[in-house]
Design a protein around this nucleic acid. Structure first.
Length: 257
DNA sequence: ATGTCACATCTAATGTGA
């Protein structure tokens, strides 16, 4: 099973590229982040024509996550659904396919260290950590998306310039590590311990052309899922060309009964 | 030196968010 996660930075602005990409990569499941639209604005027909079911948890202007799948999910959970008041930002969506749970996640950006949005990001991580801890450990669980954290210096093109900046600060890295402590593996890093590869490049200053990037998009997998994982790669080609998202997709393969 | 995008709004240039 080929399963992708991609921050598309507006599904409407990226609809044509998304369709081309789906047609060429042919994933069984694609988790999208930053769809930036309400449910009725999603380009259902375009992806439907390619044979995908669409599960969307979106809102006006910002945020929004989706799961496209060739099979209809057996169960869906939108939001934290942890009994507390639902977050106004729509950033997390789960779908179950048989025994496999898949999540599409868009962690808050955090703006600048110490800002209100940064505090919100850390609080969001706390809640997210509890959710991951509550997922079954005896069945496969994979959680893909934009974590807005570069876990280590190897994941940063200029570690010293980024030291203690948003996406790289120690509290953010500690929050990411705490996710792993719940029984999850950073699958790309586990597959490629020494490889420097990025998933996001700033639009400004020829960031992509100069390969000034960060690895902030991840596929976290619980141990059962990672044992079935045969490949995790970043689809750098999808960042090239005209009108790209600023993120590249990350694509994993899971052996599936 | 605030650069490039996408979105929204009193549809034109400005604010917000990333």
């Amino acid at each position: 099973m080929k399963i992708a996660a991609w921050n598309v930075n507006s599904v409407r602005a990226r609809a044509e590229r998304l369709v081309d990409w789906l047609a060429s990569r042919d994933p069984d499941i694609a988790c999208l982040q930053e769809t930036k639209c309400e449910d009725h604005q999603f380009p259902f027909e375009l992806v439907g024509d390619l044979g995908y079911e669409v599960t969307h948890y979106g809102q006006k202007s910002y945020n929004g996550v989706a799961i496209l799948s060739k099979k209809r999910p057996d169960e869906v959970i939108a939001g934290f659904s942890d009994g507390a008041e639902e977050d106004a930002s729509r950033r997390i969506l789960w779908a179950r396919f048989g025994t496999l749970w898949v999540a599409s996640v868009y962690v808050p950006n955090g703006q600048s260290v110490g800002s209100d949005k940064y505090q919100y990001k850390l609080r969001w991580f706390e809640r997210f950590t509890k959710i991951l801890a509550s997922r079954p450990s005896d069945l496969p669980v994979i959680v893909g998306g934009d974590y807005n954290v570069a876990p280590a210096d190897l994941d940063v093109h200029a570690p010293e310039a980024w030291r203690n900046q948003t996406l790289c600060s120690e509290p953010e890295r500690a929050a990411f590590e705490l996710l792993l402590a719940q029984g999850y593996t950073d699958s790309f890093r586990a597959m490629h311990p020494d490889r420097q590869a990025f998933s996001w490049w700033d639009y400004r200053m020829l960031g992509f052309q100069k390969n000034r990037g960060l690895r902030i998009d991840h596929w976290l997998m619980n141990h059962v899922a990672y044992a079935k994982c045969t490949s995790v790669e970043i689809d750098r080609e999808a960042r090239k060309g005209d009108d790209p998202s600023d993120h590249a997709p990350i694509i994993c393969e899971i052996d599936q009964a």
